[in-house]
């Protein structure tokens, strides 16, 4: 289980950066800094899929980057099981599998080499990594392009490789930042099936998305971040109930407009 409490992160503005009228009205701009995440709290239990929603620039990616230890929060805490992620980031990195919004593959390495490189960085032996890669490549249907360089792959192939790389070390928590963006229907389905597989294996999954149909079919819990604050944190059914018709789009708009707030635990 992962528990995030009152995370906050501000970035200094560039020297000479001028703010627009809209930005001057934005409460996140204070002095010469931009508070990307002001107060985000949520938790994700074993076997749970948590959908992280929010408009562009709401603070989702910054939250996920803090969760994955790429960024250090200014305030707040992150507990992964009993481990304090902020105190021992190296330990946390062994337990977290992270897929960033860009596939981030090495173009001149093959699919196998890309995944194997990260397996080695996670300290896996050659035998173990080969077995694990074979298992993942079968699950994600990747054997046909295992020896193809990433620069020659299609978007779907790249995303599959990036997912295999993110979970090659069998992480205790999987964090996916917009994993289906720009993918065709077939590849999207493979990715969603893979997330279901993780859920079935009891691995908690946090994924940010703009696709509400994916939230509806996959998520147990929904967190909506707006202007750097977790504006909603509850079960999928509680989220759907924000709309009279059970329409997630309406429910989302209600949270963003501040008409509905829920940070309860009704699962």
């Amino acid at each position: 289980m992962i528990e995030i409490r009152q995370l906050a992160k501000a970035f200094a503005l560039e020297k000479g950066q001028k703010l627009s009228e809209a930005e001057l009205q934005d409460v996140r701009y204070t002095g010469r800094s931009f508070c990307s995440v002001r107060d985000v709290s949520f938790s994700c239990a074993r076997g749970e899929v948590l959908g992280l929603l929010g408009p562009n620039g709401a603070g989702k990616t910054t939250t996920l980057r803090m969760l994955s230890t790429a960024l250090k929060p200014d305030a707040g805490s992150i507990l992964l099981g009993n481990a304090d992620v902020l105190q021992d980031p190296l330990l946390a990195r062994r337990k977290i599998g992270f897929l960033s919004s860009s596939t981030g593959l090495y173009g001149r390495l093959t699919a196998f080499e890309n995944v194997a490189y990260f397996a080695r960085l996670h300290g896996m032996s050659e035998v173990a990594l080969r077995e694990r890669i074979d298992e993942l490549f079968t699950m994600l249907d990747m054997h046909s392009f295992a020896s193809r360089r990433a620069e020659l792959m299609s978007s779907g192939m790249k995303q599959k490789t990036a997912i295999a790389r993110a979970v090659v070390h069998s992480p205790a928590l999987v964090v996916l930042d917009e994993p289906t963006t720009g993918l065709d229907i077939m590849t999207t389905q493979t990715v969603l099936d893979f997330i279901r597989g993780l859920k079935a294996a009891g691995t908690p999954v946090i994924f940010s998305t703009h696709h509400l149909d994916e939230v509806s079919s996959l998520c147990d819990r929904v967190v909506v971040i707006n202007q750097g604050i977790s504006a909603f944190d509850d079960s999928l059914s509680a989220f759907a109930s924000l709309s009279s018709k059970g329409d997630l789009r309406e429910a989302f708009m209600a949270v963003i407009k501040g008409e509905a707030v829920s940070c309860g635990k009704s699962m």
């Binding site: 230890t69 990195r93 981030g104 960085l121 790389r165």
Partner: peptide
């Protein structure tokens, strides 16, 4: 290429 972010979250100092 966006690979740095992925590298930064590996268990390597």
């Amino acid at each position: 290429r966006g690979t740095l972010e992925t590298l930064l979250i590996c268990p390597i100092s």
